[in-house]
Design a protein around this nucleic acid. Structure first.
Lengths: 287, 287
DNA sequence: TATAATTTTGAAATAAAATTTCTTAAATTA
DNA sequence: TAATTTAAGAAATTTTATTTCAAAATTATA
């Protein structure tokens, strides 16, 4: 829905009440709309087989103060032209035009965040932040795409000097899980919530008395059932074609929230770490 | 959601890499956006306390052919903008209420994607997809938070049986860069575009004749200048508190787009791979 | 720290574009 | 058919944009 004046509609409606030469100008504009903003008044006069004075008269007839104003207005109208479907999930189809792919992927990723925002339980987030703040160390468990989310969490919490580690394969996960104990927090990242290795690790962790946090899709799953704190994400179930794009973005956002929650609550303690790590990284930039 | 180019975002992101006088122009434009379309180049020079030559230089720096093109573009952006205010970037404050943190983080991550959509050059995306399709192998270069994005790319492209690898430390990056040659594609991921190791690797890669693709923030930087194909992202410059959250989400979205572009164009070839990898992963789920 | 090289900048010159004025042509009407 | 009005373009003028160039500021180098 274009909310602004649409000059093209104005021109179309005005057309019949214009003088013959002005009408030529109007028709020329309607036929070459996209090019108009880049034409000079002389160019447009040539293209419409009229004169520059007539083009200017046309602009004034439409109510503009001059050619420049007219161009500004037509540019704005072209800018506000609606871009088709906006906010439903759309899957990528084979052979899709690249432009559609670009907006679909972007919209889906945005939608994943938005949807996660609406399913996530704020009390659970608060509980998670609380146990993370008082934890002696944090261990992330995730495999494949979820492993990447874990690595991200590890990097983030390292910056505020939290003892933390990400384990991204079954074996190291089991060994790490065995060594956890009371006061430790284990964060399990799994889209499905049914990954064998993750459930195995969860069971070991629980036996050892550490607190478990699950980041998983909003759904019934063993992970969701058995973990102490449940942070749900939501993302479209697109076909396998699209890979696990949205869910990963949603999971990262949950990690961001946990990090910001902890860092903000402990700001007095952590700001020196943030400053230090920021500066040391900046020194690795040229110039 | 504004899906079109938004020049105001471009200006905001570019600001810090401009010369002092160009920066004055940029700030003046950001403060008087609505008036700009009706100002002559001389007016704008006066308003920004610079010279007409500098304003013109500013337009060219941003990539426009002249002042007129710039005005057309800014008019289009103004025409397409919808209810602002709501979608301003917001930073986390120490001690913020958890509920505010949750929505700020989510909104900022969404906005990063949206803004990236408005600065990314679709022709460059098309070129990138083309070289990726015909490449004999793909190598990702990135360090720190960007390294995680690289790992993600590696996982994605592996699923369609593309030869690919992510190198996330300076040494392995240099050795990998040395061995690349014609027909190979190197994807460089760096938010700043100035990371020492990345620039070094880029120089080696160029010397060896491989094609270079940069994923970096919309800004002037050595990486942006020197790479063959430039894919820009946009994200708010929040204070250091928030870490590199938005930029990472934006970069991942760009990777998603490249992957979907390649997979969609080669759907007939890759669907068997996608099915196979999907099934083998599903077998690792319980029940 | 002085000097060379480079980059940034604005003033002036030039070119291009927009606007006004004026004249002629066409249409209308008495 | 002649007088009047309206429409249109050519030419002149004004404004605007662009290029060129030299001074100033900055950065690198000795």
């Amino acid at each position: 829905m274009a909310i602004n004046d649409n000059i093209l509609i104005k021109i179309r409606d005005m057309k019949d009440s214009l003088t013959p030469v002005e009408k030529l100008v109007a028709e020329c504009i309607l036929e070459n709309t996209d090019d108009i903003p880049h034409l000079s008044i002389k160019n447009l006069a040539q293209l419409s087989k009229t004169s520059d004075a007539s083009v200017l008269r046309f602009c004034k007839t439409l109510g503009y103060s001059g050619y420049r104003s007219f161009i500004v207005s037509i540019s704005a109208s072209l800018g506000s032209r609606d871009d088709e479907q906006k906010d439903q999930y759309t899957d990528i189809q084979p052979g899709d035009d690249l432009s559609i792919i670009i907006s679909n992927i972007s919209l889906n990723n945005m939608k994943s965040i938005e949807d996660t925002l609406s399913v996530i339980n704020r009390n659970e987030v608060a509980r998670a932040v609380k146990v993370l703040r008082s934890s002696s160390r944090i261990v992330f468990f995730g495999i494949g795409a979820s492993g990447i989310v874990c690595k991200d969490g590890e990097q983030k919490f390292s910056r505020i000097n939290k003892m933390c580690h990400a384990y991204t394969d079954g074996h190291s996960q089991l060994t790490a899980a065995t060594l956890l104990g009371k006061g430790d927090v284990a964060i399990f990242v799994s889209n499905s919530g049914d990954t064998v290795e993750i459930i195995e690790a969860l069971e070991v962790v629980k036996k050892n008395g550490a607190t478990s946090i699950a980041i998983t899709k909003y759904n019934k799953s063993e992970l969701a059932d058995k973990s102490d704190i449940l942070l749900s994400i939501s993302t479209p179930e697109l076909t396998f074609r699209s890979g696990a794009m949205g869910s990963r973005i949603a999971m990262l956002t949950v990690i961001d929230i946990l990090f910001a929650g902890v860092a903000s609550a402990e700001y007095q303690n952590v700001k020196k770490y943030l400053t230090k790590t920021h500066n040391i990284l900046a020194s690795k930039h040229r110039k």
